[in-house]
Design a protein around this nucleic acid. Sequence first.
DNA 1: CCTTCCGTTAGGCTC
DNA 2: GAGCCTAGCGGAAGG
Lengths: 246, 246
Amino acid sequence: MRLEEASEKIRAGLREHALIIVVGLMEVAYEGRAASVLGPGERLLIIKQDGSILVHRPLGYEPVNWQPPGSRVDVYLMDDSLVIEARRISPQEILRITFHEIYDVHSFKLRDSAEFAMYATEEDMKKAILLEPSIIESGFKPIEDERRVGESGFIDVFGVDSKGNLVVIEIKRRNATAADIKQLINYVNGIERELGRKPRAIIAAPGIQKSAVKELKVYGVEFKCLTPKRCHEILRKKSGLERFLD
Amino acid sequence: MRLEEASEKIRAGLREHALIIVVGLMEVAYEGRAASVLGPGERLLIIKQDGSILVHRPLGYEPVNWQPPGSRVDVYLMDDSLVIEARRISPQEILRITFHEIYDVHSFKLRDSAEFAMYATEEDMKKAILLEPSIIESGFKPIEDERRVGESGFIDVFGVDSKGNLVVIEIKRRNATAADIKQLINYVNGIERELGRKPRAIIAAPGIQKSAVKELKVYGVEFKCLTPKRCHEILRKKSGLERFLD
DNA sequence: CCTTCCGTTAGGCTC
DNA sequence: GAGCCTAGCGGAAGG
């Protein structure tokens, strides 16, 4: 495909705010927060109407180079090459793609207004605990969620146990780390300062990093195994009755 | 485009391990570590020969759904739809794309053996300091890089200043945080235990978060402004002479 | 604007 | 393989 023709097609796609696909032999250079160069190779370029731009090699999940939404895209011909530049300010970054050959150009005007719904997030885990507190332990009662503690941040779930002890719960959807436990300790200290009583500290997560296990004992933190999947199932089971309360 | 025809094209692409592009009206469901659903909409599907699979909406840098390399891709027709499933084990995950209409299918056999070179990483910053220690301060001399300190981890650069004081340097390519400073303090304490002398602590980074500034004074840590760009330039300038030593 | 935190993080490295 | 850390992380939410 002649570069002049490709250039026209790409310009047309940009004008009408289409999603554009370009396949060809290209070099890529990036300079901004970091810098990279990539020699000639056959790749797929995607330009979206919001200025997102992605260079995909034949292998791998991730784009090798990219620019997030909001970048300005320029196209010009130079020295037997077609050059596409995507710039953004803040941070100042430039991505330059130099095509030596172009095999294919397509542009598409896509309509997509569907809502994306994701389940089994950390937020869902919190909802599940509030909905069915016994998954933490029998007799546990939540008092507040997202309680602010001084400058430290927000407690995921704050409550009392069956014996009337205060309980601070930190939720993680992935294995808990030593940093997570330190954060929890900050909350415990904050609550003790504010209320004059030392609360129990529970970290609820699907697992815990080995390096963090010793921290548990050092700081007197309890670990409660809780998976995102389990929480998702609880929400699904209860949703028939209670989702309309949302 | 008829779904039967599209199905044949996609199968052919899979057989010959091509990169495949499908544009059409689709629904997407994902279940695995988390779960998501996405109703009908016009999107771009990319299937790579290594089993990477990406669903891109008309806007945004990120794919809305995906599967990393190594997943198995199946294609079948069902109830006036074309279904593409990508499964992987460990973690057990499934991505199901149901096409109601297909506008375009293309497959490409791409050759791309170029090496990707990235500059101005944290590693590059360390190299720049070792190559030109005066960018930290006049008279600074590196002794070791990646020195292990007990269980804490590795010091980026360990050296002595012009007055013979030990110096521990922590490098960050982004603004330094309070956590970075605490990490550095761990190293300082480790070195003091090991060598019986308290070293100076320097954090070298392009900037520092406001919340971390007070930690500097509290712990007696020094901040040295050092940008990845500057380090990259030093490496480039010196590379004429010294790159062949690598 | 800056900071903080989450992610189906992915990817790379070590053990 | 599991565990741990980094990223041009991107993105969202809060200040």
